[in-house]
Amino acid sequence: MTRRPLICVIDDDESVRESLPDLIREFGFDVHVFSSAEEFLASESAGHAECLLLDIAMPGMTGLELQQDLERRQSGIPIIFITALADDKVRSAALRQGVAACLFKPFSDTELRQALNRALKRD
């Protein structure tokens, strides 16, 4: 059996941190959750995450800042932005920054599945 890819969820909202991991595990991935970008960067997961589910709006370091930071370090981790703010301008700006997908909360399990597959190039 192959190793299950590690997905990291970074979101300051507790509902999201509690609900997403179960669903992602149902998809067959491993999952770690973090409540802030700083917490993620300080963890060991930063080295082996294969995809990030990253909230845009967070206190402290924002999702955008983390994404730019990782890009500067050429980490190559694919990123899926998740945001509670439904605004197409945000989505297109995010996609221009080179992220794999941008999901508006609330999103369906199918949308998430497709975004993960695209990010991990498994479809």
Binding site: D22, L23, A84, S108
Partner: peptide, 24 residues
């Protein structure tokens, strides 16, 4: 916008939990 943001957070939890529940 502020309200939508606040409401979308728990809605996201609801949809995700319900999806997970069905799958389980």
């Amino acid at each position: 916008a502020s309200i939508a943001h606040e409401v979308n957070q728990p809605l996201s939890g609801i949809v995700t939990n319900a999806s997970t529940c069905l799958r389980m």
